[in-house]
C-alpha cells in the first residue's frame, strides 16, 4: 500500500482523484432521474410556449387576447417582418424562430447546469461530506475541479437532450461542418466551466446557502433575458444590447447557432470571435476560482 503510493507520481494521483469524484458527481445525478427531468422542464417550457406559439402565430410579445383580435394578414405581415430580421441577421440562411430558440435553450440549460454546480458543493458542505473529503489526503483542487467537470458533463448531456427533443418538433438543423460543430462544443464546455467556477467561488465565499440561492435566482433569468437566446440582439433596445454583449450566454448561443443552423452561411470569423470571448471568460473565471478556492478551503 505504502509502496504503491510512492510509485504513483502525484499528478497521476490528482487525475485519479478528479476522476473518481467526477464519477461520484455523475452517479449521484443519474441516481436521481427526477432531478434531471426537473432541470429540463424549464427550457422545454420556454421552447413550447415561445418557440411554438410564435411560429404558429407569427407574433412575438403580443398578448394572446390582442392576438385573437388581429386580422390574419397582420400576423402574417409581422411574421414576414420578423423572419426578415432573422435573415438579415444571419445573411441568406433560412432560420425559423423555433430553431433559433431551441438552440438558444441548449445554451440556457448549460447555464443552469453551471449554476447548479455551486449548489452541489454547497450540499456537500451542509451535509458534512466536504469534511470527509478534506480529512482525506487528496489535493484540495481535485474537489473543485471535479465539481466543475461534473457540471460540464451535465451541461453537455442536457443540451444534447434538448436538441433531441426539439428535433421531432421541427428543429431544422443545417450543420455547418465538423470543425464548426467541434468549436461550438468547445464553446459550450468553456461556458459551462466558466459558470461552474464562478458559482463555486460564490459558494466558497458566501458560506451561507441562502445567499447562494439568492445569487442563483438573481443570475439565471436576467442572464437569459439579457442575451440573444430568445430575441436577436438587433431587436433589443440599445441599452439591453450593450448588456447582452457582455453576457457570455450570447456567445454560447451564437456559436451553437453558427454551427448547427447556418449551414454554408456559417461565418468563420463569428465562430472564432465567439470562441475567443468564451475562452477569455473561462480563463478569467478560472483564475478567480483558483484564487478563492486556495484561500477559503484552507479553513481557519
Amino acid at each position: 500500500m505504502r509502496l504503491e503510493m510512492m510509485e504513483k507520481d502525484s499528478s497521476g494521483k490528482v487525475i485519479t482523484e478528479i476522476q473518481v469524484l467526477t464519477v461520484r458527481e455523475l452517479k449521484k445525478w443519474l441516481n436521481k432521474p427526477y432531478v434531471v427531468a426537473m432541470m429540463l422542464i424549464q427550457p422545454l417550457l420556454w421552447i413550447a410556449l415561445f418557440g411554438k406559439a410564435f411560429n404558429l402565430t407569427g407574433i412575438f410579445s403580443i398578448p394572446p387576447d390582442l392576438l385573437k383580435n388581429l386580422p390574419p394578414y397582420v400576423t402574417q405581415q409581422i411574421q414576414t417582418m420578423f423572419n426578415g430580421i432573422l435573415s438579415r441577421l444571419f445573411g441568406n440562411a433560412q432560420i425559423d424562430y423555433f430553431s433559433y430558440m431551441a438552440i438558444g435553450m441548449m445554451a440556457v440549460i448549460s447555464l443552469f447546469a453551471g449554476l447548479q454546480t455551486g449548489m452541489s458543493l454547497s450540499w456537500d458542505r451542509r451535509l458534512g461530506y466536504l469534511n470527509k473529503l478534506l480529512v482525506s489526503p487528496i489535493s484540495r483542487g481535485s474537489i473543485i475541479v471535479s465539481k466543475v467537470l461534473g457540471g460540464t458533463v451535465k451541461a453537455l448531456v442536457q443540451s444534447l437532450i434538448i436538441l433531441l427533443i426539439a428535433l421531432p418538433f421541427g428543429l431544422k438543423l443545417e450543420i455547418a461542418g465538423l470543425w464548426q460543430v467541434l468549436a461550438a462544443l468547445l464553446g459550450l464546455v468553456l461556458f459551462a466551466i466558466g459558470i461552474g467556477t464562478l458559482m463555486i467561488s460564490i459558494t466558497l465565499k458566501a458560506k451561507s446557502w441562502e445567499t447562494q440561492m439568492t445569487v442563483m435566482n438573481l443570475l439565471n433569468l436576467p442572464l437569459m433575458f439579457a442575451s440573444n437566446v430568445l430575441v436577436p440582439l438587433a431587436m433589443m433596445p440599445d441599452w439591453l444590447q450593450v448588456v447582452a454583449k457582455f453576457n457570455p450566454l450570447t456567445y454560447t448561443a451564437d456559436i451553437l447557432r453558427q454551427a448547427l443552423l447556418m449551414g454554408t452561411e456559417a461565418s468563420t470569423s463569428a465562430i472564432l470571435k465567439d470562441l475567443g470571448i468564451l475562452t477569455l471568460t473561462a480563463a478569467i473565471l478560472l483564475t478567480v476560482g483558483v484564487f478563492v478556492a486556495g484561500k477559503t478551503l484552507r479553513k481557519d
Binding site: 473518481v20 469524484l21 452517479k27 449521484k28 441516481n31 470527509k132 482525506s136 489526503p137 487528496i138
Partner: peptide, 16 residues
Amino acid sequence: DLTGWDNLMVQAALYH
C-alpha cells in the same frame, strides 16, 4: 445518493 458499495469505492479511491 450512492449505494453502500459505491460509498466505499469512492472512499477507497480517495486513499489510492
